[in-house]
Design a protein around this nucleic acid. Structure first.
Length: 563
RNA sequence: GCGCCUGUAGCUCAAGUGGACAGAGCGCCGGACUUCGAAUCCGUCGGUUGCGAGUUCGAGUCUCGCCAGGCGCGCCA
């Protein structure tokens, strides 16, 4: 159990005890929250419960605080409880208890940081899901870093997590891409084939066209045009997906499932779901198209599910993205039975959120099971100039290039350091020049430093065996232990609020506290009189190594032994 | 015009549910290596939380109105 929950429990017990002793009037016990005070002088933990209870208890907050403090039961973890104005109860943790937590961390090992959830859930996190029509952009990198870190945190919280990439391989997507690829392929064969006006301009398509021409000769040129476009499109998409999977793997991002949008139609699922909406009288046929009657559910306008034949002739290209989304949410929550579906979307899709949630509700699904996490855009600067990015025009810095320039660990770290709600304005020149000052190296350095200490100790024959952690009483040692104990809280915070940015901030803080400890406390001493303390401190730094490594791993960042 | 996000130290950003004197890093300036990694540490300076009202014991946080920036608002994907 997290110490903060334990303390909250003590506060509740104290409230009840104070009421029994007639020190407080009877009132229903509220939910009690314990929080970290901003200043060290206010102890390790504090609760503002007295301030909130003043009205119900009809007493001055400070008096309530005093009553609570007087009735807190004795506890091995708590050294001191005080009431302070205007109405806080402050807790100071026991040094001995803190020191003992080093053993707890060592015993937990690589699993330290795990938290037992209130309820075990089967959760799907769907992320990246970039159109398979070209290389991944830096924006997709942000999506990947956010989604993967969230998935890691949810797993640490004990949930069963499935990581999914939704492949937009349906409809006119494949044709558009195929037409561009076909043109480049034909041109590579020396044919006079015009490039489509709205085609994908990137140089990568030219290269792919040349590769197909080299590999298959004029095989596709001789078959019926529409068939060639379709087949080239599908092959090209498969190829792009393989390349993108490799890019993501460089960032330590891997998926359990690459889910095909097309399969939603081929399995007949969309037809079934459309019928369910019809049964709810939420489907309207007008202007030759099929509409979702979103206005019936309070939205501003209706939305097309299936386009009219006048707009697009081919039947399999007529369903819209919304059509897929509606079938997909049903697939997630009903067909595959996930308790919760988490989507990570770029902010440009925020207008789609209400429609998907409305559709889920219309299908009788609890919209609380769906979380759509939006992240703002990444803008890149080079030489002070904003690098404009568009997959259509083929002008962009690819995620691969960014990884090449900055390094995978720094990329992952920097893409989750800021809250998803904030745009990232990233200057490539600065990142490359100051890469040594990148916070990720600060954190990794702490880990490598510990590895080096342990190596040094091993060379001298010093071990932690039989180390007595009760010798850990130096303020810097206790500060380090306090910091390590925060990891489970951070995991819980990240996973419940879907805010991965707390993790890198915590990592920086933990590393800083370790570095400070290192400066103040020598771990491996050559003085035989210090042998016992050396053993205890070796335990402490082993624990610190475990916590740093886990923190980095949760972010998909390596924890190097040397650097 | 409407909707969503953002505005906090010179710069980049934090700040669980409304809590105590709003915190870090970078940069600037000044210190610290004859035993474990100086990619480090210690210290100084730095604020009308975009502006103005409101709600209440208390607001960076909630409400309303302005200002500025980003993103949306198609039978596009």
């Amino acid at each position: 159990m997290l110490i903060k929950n334990h303390l909250a429990e003590l506060v509740k017990q104290a409230l009840a005890a104070a009421q029994n002793a007639n020190a407080l009037a009877a009132f229903p016990l509220p939910e009690v929250f314990v929080e970290r005070p901003q200043k060290k002088e206010w102890g390790d933990w504090a609760t503002a419960a007295p301030l909130k209870l003043a009205r119900a208890a009809k007493r001055a907050p400070l008096q309530i605080a005093q009553a609570i403090a007087a009735h807190i039961p004795p506890d091995e973890a708590v050294a001191q409880v005080t009431a302070s104005a205007p109405g806080f109860v402050n807790f100071v943790l026991s040094d001995a208890w803190l020191a003992r937590q080093v053993e707890t961390i060592l015993a937990a090992g690589a699993r330290f940081g795990d938290v037992t959830p209130a309820r075990h859930l089967k959760i799907q996190v769907e992320y990246v899901s970039a159109n398979p029509t070209g290389p991944l952009t830096v924006g997709s990198g942000r999506n990947a870093a956010i989604g993967d870190t969230l998935a890691n945190a949810l797993e640490a919280l004990g949930h069963t997590v499935q990581r999914e990439y939704y492949v937009n391989d349906a409809g006119s997507q494949v044709r558009h891409f195929g037409e561009s690829l076909f043109a480049r392929y034909a041109q590579a064969l020396g044919k006079d084939e015009p490039f489509p006006a709205d085609g994908y301009q990137g140089a990568y398509i030219v290269a792919m066209g040349q590769e197909f021409a080299r590999q298959y000769g004029d095989q596709y040129w001789r078959m019926p045009r529409a068939q060639a476009i379709r087949e080239l499109g599908r092959q090209g998409i498969a190829q792009v997906l393989r390349a993108n999977a490799a890019t993501l793997a460089r960032l330590n991002v891997r998926f359990d499932e690459w889910f095909s949008e097309r399969s939603l139609y081929e399995s007949g699922l969309f037809a079934q779901v459309l019928q369910k909406l019809r049964d709810q009288r939420l489907v309207i046929e007008k202007e030759d198209a099929v509409w979702f009657a979103a206005t019936e559910l309070g939205l501003a306008q209706d939305a097309v599910l299936v386009r009219s034949p006048q707009v697009i002739a081919e039947a399999d290209e007529r369903p819209t993205y919304l059509a897929s989304d509606v079938a997909y949410v049903w697939n997630k929550l009903v067909v595959r039975g996930f308790d919760r579906a988490i989507y990570v979307w770029g902010a440009d899709h925020h207008g789609d959120v209400p429609r998907v949630l409305a559709a889920a509700r219309a299908l009788g699904l609890d919209p609380a099971r769906v979380s759509i996490l939006l992240y703002q855009f990444v803008t890149l600067r080079r030489g002070g100039q904003v690098v404009r990015m568009s997959k259509r025009t083929g002008e962009f810095v690819t995620l691969d290039e960014l990884i090449e320039e900055v390094g995978p660990d720094a990329v992952r770290f920097m893409l989750i350091t800021q809250s998803a709600n904030a745009t990232i304005d990233f200057d490539l020149d600065v990142a490359v020049e100051h890469s040594d000052e990148n916070p990720v190296y600060y954190v990794q350095y702490a880990h490598a430093r510990i590895a080096s200490i342990l190596k040094h100790a091993a060379e001298l024959g010093a071990t932690s065996a039989g180390g007595d952690v009760s010798l850990l009483t130096h303020p810097a040692e206790l500060e380090l232990i306090r910091a390590m104990l925060r990891l489970p809280e951070i995991v819980e915070l990240v996973a419940t609020k879907l805010e991965p940015h707390h993790l890198p901030h915590y990592a920086i803080e933990l590393a800083g506290i370790f570095h400070s400890f290192y400066k103040q406390c020598r771990v491996v001493s050559s003085d035989p009189a210090d042998a016992a303390l050396t053993r205890a401190r070796l335990k402490l730094v082993q624990a610190a190594k475990i916590v740093l490594a886990r923190t980095l791993n949760l972010m998909g960042v390596r924890a190097p032994e040397a650097m």
